[in-house]
Design a protein around this nucleic acid. Structure first.
Lengths: 179, 179, 179, 179
DNA sequence: AATGAATGAGAGTTCATTCAT
DNA sequence: AATGAATGAACTCTCATTCAT
């Protein structure tokens, strides 16, 4: 999977052959097919894992603070830090859109669901605006993706902090009741 | 191009052959290659056109109102209306990410630039928050994409209005000074 | 035809398209097809012309001297001079072997026939060895081709003279009775 | 390679598809590409092999006699015998001229080099004329090619002997000092 | 007569996938 | 379980040739 991540991210999905991945991973092609039924499945698995990492980081940040009003801040910090760590494989994240449409796996879906749950929770506590989580979650997700895009255009530590700061303010203004 | 839009959107990029497109368009394969140097170029052109349509609609909505504070509303209405019109080819929009990496064309870039210009203008008038347009624009773009995604999950007219209403409020709270 | 010569010689037969030739000649593709039934026919025509030029030069040299014993010398000079003039299109000459097999035209045939006639004439005069012209002519032709090849490997004026001198001596020793 | 030889020789290079060769050889197309990077490479390999066979035969004949003055005779016999054995694929030999221009492989080059070495050796022994081997070798090679051509025009055993006899005499007269 | 856009058969090549070893 | 040679379907792209204008 490490080999797949690296190669897909640098050469693109179509631009990478199963043979290359097998070679980079020092296994035989046949062994690859023992772990993943086919090429799309490998990409899907890669994406799933990556998404899971983001969700994990996000949730951890989220739960690290009591007041729902302030939970976005550590959440965003955690996400941006994760993005920085995953920097060289971020293209994978943007990539998958078309390619994983096949299976039951829809890229971004799991993360949106996680956001939806968080929003519901905060709204129940009266901390967030009374809006439809099914609408708000994809939008919030889009905001995060947009922020990451902004950072990727200029991937310095300084910019990362600036982007995070802006995103925090926007989240607060957009979703928090008391803002 | 109409044939390409339709087929790519329904069968995916890889799932569609140049021969199919040529056949659907009632021309010879060679003629396709007379207009587009290769398959990625056709997809890029399709995407460019689609993006242009969105930018056009957005700008028109934007300029239809004087007060900058209120410009988001018609803008969002225009975008959502456009999305509804383009409903069956919307997958194209999400698709292109990986595929057009080759050329000088980056999907979403043109739209983000347009949003950046709008934000700068409104900020100069003192109507919008004093934040970096280079950061705000991708985020706003992500919000729109998220909203469209929310709508695509449940593409009814009723939902469209609900999504538009939520997005309007979020934009206002997030970006407008007087909010 | 000038365009064809140049392009075939530089880019090879397969590497040159009819469109390129037409463009270089500042005519339309259709017009090319008005003059030559197809691509091989154009190459054949080119080769025929080139061969004719060599035959012409050879014959002129040949007839410029009375004694048959001495006729090879001016003949070889004329041929080498022609080769130098045609230097940049010489690849054409080597090329055609496979490609013109189609038509009734066989590259080299006309030249071999010319040599055969010359040999017969000289043999009738008792100046040349009593050998089968049908065997001697292709061999003599091969000698000329070999000499041209030797020169092409190192296409300087000095080498041209050296090659010509060697070839003259070999011809004399090989074919002339009194040698 | 046997399939390639046969098909190229009968149908020409362009007239033969990789699929045909694969089918004739009872392997899959992909397996062909496992052995030869592309079509020209296959032709080049075929030619190389064939040339090697001729060089082998030539050298063997050459070394079968002590006196340098007499070495041409067995050499020519060996070459003509080889040509007869390879009769049906001889077209291959004439073909390659244009097609193998790509690689570092130049048809005929290896054989010319072999002849050059032989000539140098014989000249050092004082048996051959004192001429530049770099010039003589291509010419001698041309003589052999011409003789083979003469034979191919009328490929009977009787003619083969006649051609061989003439070629021997010409070689002796042309290159041997004592002649 | 000249044009050159349109044609579409056809070829080379790739590569995901299999399966005998 | 691991291997990787063999497979061959399938795809993109080219280009000689035609023919309506």
């Amino acid at each position: 999977m490490a080999a797949g991540e690296r190669l897909f991210a640098t050469q693109g999905y179509t631009g990478t052959t199963m043979a290359e991945i097998a070679h980079a991973a020092d296994v035989a092609v046949g062994s690859l097919y023992r772990l993943f039924p086919d090429k799309p499945a490998l990409l899907a698995e890669l994406h799933r894992t990556m998404e899971q990492r983001f969700i994990e980081a996000m949730s951890q940040g989220w739960r690290s603070v009591d007041a729902y009003e302030d939970r976005f801040d550590p959440m965003i910090d955690a996400l941006m830090k994760e993005a920085e760590a995953a920097q060289e494989i971020m293209p994978l994240y943007a990539m998958t859109r078309e390619l994983v449409e096949s299976a039951d796996f829809v890229p971004g879906h799991a993360m949106i669901e996680a956001i939806k749950a968080q929003y519901r929770e905060g709204r129940a506590k009266g901390a967030y605006l009374d809006q439809d989580p099914a609408v708000v979650a994809p939008i919030a997700h889009g905001m995060v993706e947009g922020a990451m895009r902004a950072w990727m255009m200029n991937p310095t530590a300084h910019r990362r902090r600036a982007v995070a700061a802006d995103l925090k303010e926007l989240f607060r203004r957009a979703f928090v009741v008391a803002a």
